[in-house]
């Protein structure tokens, strides 16, 4: 498999009146086509910043970010983005939200939208408005909307963070379904270690201040995965171990700072 996304020596500093915050420092990551990457790390370690840069929503950074050997210079449909909240257009029905700027009168769009509605299991809700949907359903609409554009990579920023555990588990299944059917490359940011292990080919663990890669953990478990299996638990502990290392570092840091 070839490299789809190539991040080299990526650094990002936020400048504000109060001074500057180094959000990311020297991030290197090569993502292969069709790979499922999860990014995990403590709050404020730069996960969203990283994702926004890859999406082209933030273009002020040092280093290089290349998608298919081309520099990322702005947002676009080849980089689908799922925000933490669904961000649907409240005045459009489910199917029109998915189509957005494209016309449902075109047969090929109509057909694809119908297929996607089936894929995200929203049949019967085509004509519903966002206010009539539950959080999980709305997030599935957002996913379908991104998928309609055939993105090369789908970027997800804690997409299931606001959902209850039950819906969340269901959505993870839906996402894996989509990934296996469409072979879309995924970069998935999460707070949840279980979620990170359950979905990933590789887990990127970030540590904060400044945001750097602490470790990249490959996950070679076969799908479908069982969260209760011994191998799963073993990996989980490995990730938790890395987190503990970060915490120890933080304690030393803070101690020195006082």
């Amino acid at each position: 498999m070839s490299t789809l996304l190539d991040i080299r020596q990526l650094s990002k500093t936020f400048h504000s009146g109060k001074g500057s915050v180094s959000a990311l420092q020297n991030i290197n990551l090569a993502v292969k086509e069709g790979e499922f990457i999860t990014v995990i790390g403590p709050s404020g370690c730069g996960k969203s910043t990283l994702l926004k840069i890859v999406a082209g929503l933030d273009v002020e950074y040092d280093g290089s970010v290349k998608l298919n050997d081309r520099d990322v210079t702005g947002p676009g449909i080849e980089k689908g983005f799922i925000f933490q909240e669904p961000r649907l257009f409240p005045w459009l029905t489910v199917e029109k939200n998915i189509a957005a700027d494209l016309s449902l009168h075109k047969p090929e769009i109509r057909k694809k939208v119908d297929e996607l509605i089936e894929l995200v299991r929203l049949k019967g809700f085509e004509k519903s408005y966002p206010r009539e949907l539950s959080g999980g359903m709305a997030q599935r609409v957002a996913i379908a909307r991104a998928l309609l554009r055939n993105p090369k990579v789908l970027l997800l920023d804690e997409p299931f963070g606001a959902l209850d555990a039950f819906t969340r588990a269901h959505m993870q299944e839906v996402l894996l379904d989509i990934w296996q059917q469409n072979k879309t490359t995924m970069i998935f940011v999460t707070h949840d270690i279980d979620e990170a292990v359950f979905l990933a080919n590789r887990i990127v663990i970030l540590k904060p201040r400044p945001g750097t890669v602490q470790k990249i953990v490959p996950v070679e478990l076969l799908f479908p995965r069982k969260k209760s299996s011994a191998a799963f638990q073993e990996l989980r502990f490995k990730v938790i171990g890395e987190f503990e290392k970060i915490e120890e570092l933080e304690l030393v840091d803070n101690g020195a700072g006082i």
Binding site: G76, F81, R87, W91, R149
Partner: peptide
């Protein structure tokens, strides 16, 4: 403003941005 990010990610043209986002939202 967050819907503008969405319009960017979905590659709305300037025209579509006005007719499909700003005008309905301002209605």
């Amino acid at each position: 403003n967050r819907l503008f990010d969405v319009a960017g990610v979905l590659e709305f043209s300037r025209f579509k941005q006005i007719t499909r986002l700003i005008l309905p939202a301002a209605l």
